[in-house]
Amino acid sequence: MTSLQAVILIALMSVCTFLTRALPFILFPAARKIPPFVVWLGNALPFAIIAMLVVYCLKDVSLKASPHGLPELISIAAVVLLYLWKRSPLLAIAGGTVLHMFLAQAVF
């Protein structure tokens, strides 16, 4: 990829990110009332989307080929346990990531 192509991709990411953030303000100028379904959807969707993103992160993990997703499984278990133990998001994220790097580099 050339530098110009990379700049184009980054510009696209910037513009499209802004679009997702600006869409409600474009669709619902202050005067108009927001339909109740949209309000309800706005409550429910973040939960579903975050769950979907967890799956998205794991999309390229192969269960058939070695190591059969074991580094990911162990590291996610570590994130969950660290979070339940200390209730600290940062500790859970840092601990799980360091463990995953260790597993990916030194064990599997």
């Binding site: 409550n43 429910a44 969707l45 973040p46 939960f47 579903a48 989307i49 975050i50 769950a51 979907m52 993103l53 967890v54 799956v55 992160c57 794991l58 990911e72 590291s75 996610i76 994130v79 969950v80 979070y83 339940l84 998001p89 859970a92 994220i93 799980g96 990531t97 995953h100």
Partner: peptide, 26 residues
Amino acid sequence: MTALFTVIFLEQWRTRRGRRPALLGI
């Protein structure tokens, strides 16, 4: 990134009210 979303998922799970949409998402 996986760890970040897992933690956000857990935080949302604790609030209870979004568990069904969360399961739907997975």
